[in-house]
Structures are given as C-alpha cells and as structure tokens.
Amino acid sequence: MTKIVLDAGHGGTDSGAVGNGLREKDLTLNIVKKIGDMLKDYEGVEIIYTRTDDRFIELSERAAIANRAGADFFLSVHINAGGGTGFESYIYNGNVSSATIAYQNVIHAEIVKAINVTDRGKKRANYAVLRETKMPAILIENLFIDNANDAAKLKSEQFLQQIAYGHVQGIVKAFGLKKKVNSTPSQPQQKVSDGKLYRVQVGAFSDRKNAERLAEELKKKGYPAIIV
C-alpha cells in the first residue's frame, strides 16, 4: 500500500496569497480534492489529507500528520504570488534522498506537460513541511494569484482539473501505480430525441497535445472522445 499525504496549503484564518478575487486557501483545497478523487482509480493507494475543509493547521502539524501515518510521500499544493508567472516545484534544501529528487523530476515534468505554462524550474527551499517530514516531500507552486493572466486560468475549473491531472500523472509514474480493474465506468448511452444528438464538451485548449492527453484519459475511462 502506497500512503500519500495531500496537503492543501493554508486554510482557516490563514488565507494564503490573495489577488484578482481569488484566495490561495480555496484554490489549494479545490486542487487537492481533485487529485484525491483521481487517485481513487488506482490500486494500492491510501490517500491522507491534512485538511478537507477550511481550517487552520500549523505547519508542524501538517508534517506530523504524515509522519504519524508512516506515509510514503508528502505533496503540498500552493499558489504563488509576487508578480511572476508560471509553475515551480520545491524539495528541501538540506539532505534529501535520491527518491525525493527522482520524484520531483517526474512529477514536475508531468505537471509542465499538463498545464503548458512557463516552467520556472525545480528548486530547493527550507520550508517547514519539507524539512520536518520524514518521507520524500515536494511543495508545488501553481501559477501566480496576483498575475492577471495566471489568475484568469486559475478561475477555470477545467484548468484546475488539468493541474490536478498533471499532479496525478506524475504520482502514477513516480510510484508505478496501476488502474483498478473495475475503475472504468460503463459506456454512456447517447440519447437521441427528434433526430438531434447532444454532446458535452469537457475541455478547450490552445495546445492540441493537451487536448489529446485529455481525450486519451477519457477513452481509458470508457467514454467516447473526439477532438474538434
């Protein structure tokens, strides 16, 4: 069993960064829940959340939750601020395992592919949740809340889904996770009324590769998918 701790940054009285009508604590919880929901489709995974609602948790307690659980991996999700743009990931700037470096390499690459934004690079920092956790730990900064263009993306549920998808693909590759045999839903029935066929659009992308990745994921889940 692979135990993965999902940490939604900030919460409660700590809103995190704010800008353009958004609050970091809300976005991180949204993304983390999406990651957890997607990981349910894989075998041998136990998901542990540091929070599932809007509450304040000390940084040391977040690390303690993971340590008490004997987790195999700790992922802390954040939104950046400071006027920049793009995505970056962090591991501890002290001694880390080779597994930590390998996981960062894989997960970072998959997120970049999924969201197609400026890659600010793989970095190191002395963050408490990275320093105090006893297992491989990564902290992700997903775009800048105070950048108007980044914020416009963060206001899209579909884009948040893509962010979560990138995280999940990275975790799947890093840990070699396999889809559950019974995770594929039955083929949806298309209902025709008066000769009209109704379809539901699930994504819109400027990069065709992102569209192809989502279409492939839908097909794996048993849904017919076309790209127009």
Rank of each mutant, 00 (worst) to 15 (best):
I107A: 08
E110F: 05
E110P: 01
V112S: 03
I115Y: 00
I115R: 14
N116Y: 12
V117G: 14
T118P: 02
D119L: 03
G121M: 10
K122C: 12
K122R: 12
K123I: 09
K123L: 14
R124K: 14
A125K: 10
Y127F: 14
Y127D: 08
A128S: 01
L130H: 06
R131G: 08
R131D: 11
T133K: 00
T133F: 03
M135C: 14
A137L: 02
A137F: 07
A137V: 08
I138R: 09
L139P: 03
L139K: 02
L139H: 12
L139V: 08
L143D: 13
L143H: 11
F144R: 00
F144Y: 15
I145V: 08
I145N: 04
N147L: 00
N147V: 03
N149A: 15
D150L: 12
D150S: 09
A151S: 14
K153I: 05
K153Y: 03
K153N: 13
L154S: 03
L154R: 02
L154F: 13
S156I: 09
S156R: 05
S156L: 05
E157H: 07
E157G: 10
E157K: 06
Q158E: 06
F159P: 01
L160A: 14
L160D: 15
Q161E: 15
A164Q: 02
A164G: 15
Y165H: 02
G166Y: 01
G166D: 07
G166P: 05
V168M: 10
Q169E: 04
G170I: 12
G170M: 01
G170T: 11
I171P: 00
V172D: 00
K173N: 11
K173P: 10
K173Y: 02
A174D: 10
F175W: 13
G176R: 04
L177F: 08
L177I: 07
K178Q: 13
K178H: 13
K180Y: 00
V181R: 05
V181N: 01
V181Q: 09
V181A: 11
N182M: 05
S183F: 00
S183K: 01
T184S: 11
P185I: 07
S186T: 06
P188A: 03
P188Q: 08
Q189G: 13
K191D: 12
K191F: 11
S193A: 12
D194V: 03
K196W: 13
K196N: 13
L197R: 02
R199V: 11
R199T: 09
Q201A: 13
Q201E: 10
Q201H: 08
Q201Y: 09
V202W: 03
G203A: 06
A204V: 03
F205Y: 11
S206P: 06
S206N: 07
S206I: 02
R208M: 10
R208W: 01
R208D: 06
K209I: 04
K209E: 07
